[in-house]
Amino acid sequence: MVQIIAKNWAFYQSINRDPDVISLCFDEPSLEEIKASFESRLPVWDKASEQWLCLTITLNETDEMIGITGFRVQNGIAEVGFMIQPKYHGLGYGTESLKALIKWAYENHGIQCFNAVVTEGNIGSEKVLIKCGFSLKDVIPNSYNIGGKLYADHIYQYQKITL
């Protein structure tokens, strides 16, 4: 995984417009919204950054980009997120990349607490979070609108235990 760069624009745009990826995440954004989101992720990231650290998930064998992952830090807590191309769903790449992201964030930046917000019904993402040690901390009913329908937000948390 490496931080997203300008030449990754086409991939970033396509994954943010793929109905099978975004259907339980958000309504399809406009091209301008995607471009603004992409550009906000391009500056070199450090722990004091307010923007998301956005990393591409790439297959080692083929160098094919299959998804993105990352987090943003607020008040010492990292909110994580990930999107993976549908043909790679269920193959363990989300779990592998999230575990690696958490390990890197902890070892290199001392981040010990991670949150994730998942839209009700996004069972695949919830399974990934649980496999990575997250637990459901809260459910906020009718908090997110996708396609004119209200969904609950499921709030997950992972706390790195240090001895």
Rank of each mutant, 00 (worst) to 15 (best):
E64C: 06
W104D: 10
G81K: 05
I22Q: 00
L98N: 05
Y93F: 11
N115H: 12
Q51R: 11
Y106G: 06
V139G: 00
K87Y: 08
E96M: 04
A6S: 14
D27H: 05
C132S: 12
A116H: 02
L129S: 03
A48F: 08
Q3M: 04
E79H: 13
W9Q: 10
P43A: 15
G94L: 00
G92D: 07
V117M: 15
G133L: 06
I130H: 02
I4D: 01
K160P: 00
Y151G: 04
M83D: 14
W52A: 03
Q85A: 05
G133H: 01
H154F: 09
N108R: 00
G90A: 07
W9N: 02
C132T: 07
G121R: 12
K149Q: 14
Q3R: 13
I15D: 00
K160A: 05
Y151H: 11
K35R: 15
H89T: 07
I22T: 02
S125C: 12
Y106R: 10
N75W: 10
Y106I: 04
T162A: 07
L136P: 11
V73D: 01
L150Q: 10
F26S: 06
L53T: 03
F11V: 05
V73P: 03
G92E: 09
I34L: 08
G67L: 00
K35D: 15
Y12H: 07
V80W: 00
C54Q: 08
L163I: 13
A10H: 14
V139R: 11
K127F: 10
W104H: 12
M65S: 03
K149H: 14
I102P: 09
G124I: 04
C25K: 08
K47D: 14
A105I: 01
T62Q: 06
Q3E: 15
F38S: 10
D153G: 08
T162K: 06
K47A: 15
Q85F: 01
N122L: 09
Q3V: 03
A48L: 07
M83G: 01
E50K: 13
A152L: 08
G92H: 10
Y88D: 03
N8T: 02
S30F: 06
